[in-house]
């Protein structure tokens, strides 16, 4: 069964992870640093949630080299990202794009935090009000008296 599945497609993949090879590294450290920034944002398509910088898959290597070529040619980081996304789609972005279908993803945590905080404040206020208005009933009064030493 597993064999049969594996036959369906040879993903251009390999494990375990590696990283950038020496022959890829750009001579200009500033450009190389930018290539790393881009590389950490690009998903290696065939290797399960890894950035292309963290993978030794041949396709990841090809993409790393491509990224460096674009940077050397004078592209900005965003232009390099757009170049790759135009070919492979939004799936290659490890940082999901901000648009209607991802608003819930991006603003969800802040929304949940806001709801949780306001629920908490509401509960506190209500509790305060409740604690002010509910007097002890006779039973409780008696117990309290007992605890306090039975003084009337």
């Amino acid at each position: 069964m597993i064999r049969a599945l594996a036959l369906l497609l040879v993903l251009l993949t390999a494990t375990p992870a590696w990283t950038v090879e020496p022959d890829e590294i750009l001579a200009d450290p500033a450009q190389e640093a930018r290539a790393r920034e881009v590389g950490q944002e690009l998903r290696c398509l065939v290797c399960q949630n890894q950035a292309i910088d963290d993978s030794n898959a041949p396709l990841a290597r090809d993409l790393r080299i491509l990224v460096r070529e674009r940077i050397k040619a004078g592209d900005s980081n965003a232009q390099v990202m757009d170049f790759v996304v135009a070919r492979y789609g939004d799936f290659v972005r490890l940082r999901p794009p901000m648009r209607a279908e991802t608003y819930l993803l991006w603003f969800g945590p802040a929304l949940i935090l806001a709801i949780a905080l306001s629920a908490l404040l509401l509960a506190l206020r209500r509790r305060k009000a409740a604690s002010r208005t509910v007097p002890l009933d006779a039973n409780e009064r008696a117990r309290l008296d007992k605890i306090l030493g039975g003084e009337p």
């Binding site: 251009l12 398509l45 492979y88």
Partner: peptide, 30 residues
Amino acid sequence: GRAAIEWGVYGVPETFVIDREGRIRYRHVG
């Protein structure tokens, strides 16, 4: 493998259907 990147290929085999205007209409993976 550079042309394959232009085509957005991430595994072999992949098959594309191209129409008369030279547009990609369908891709089959595997």
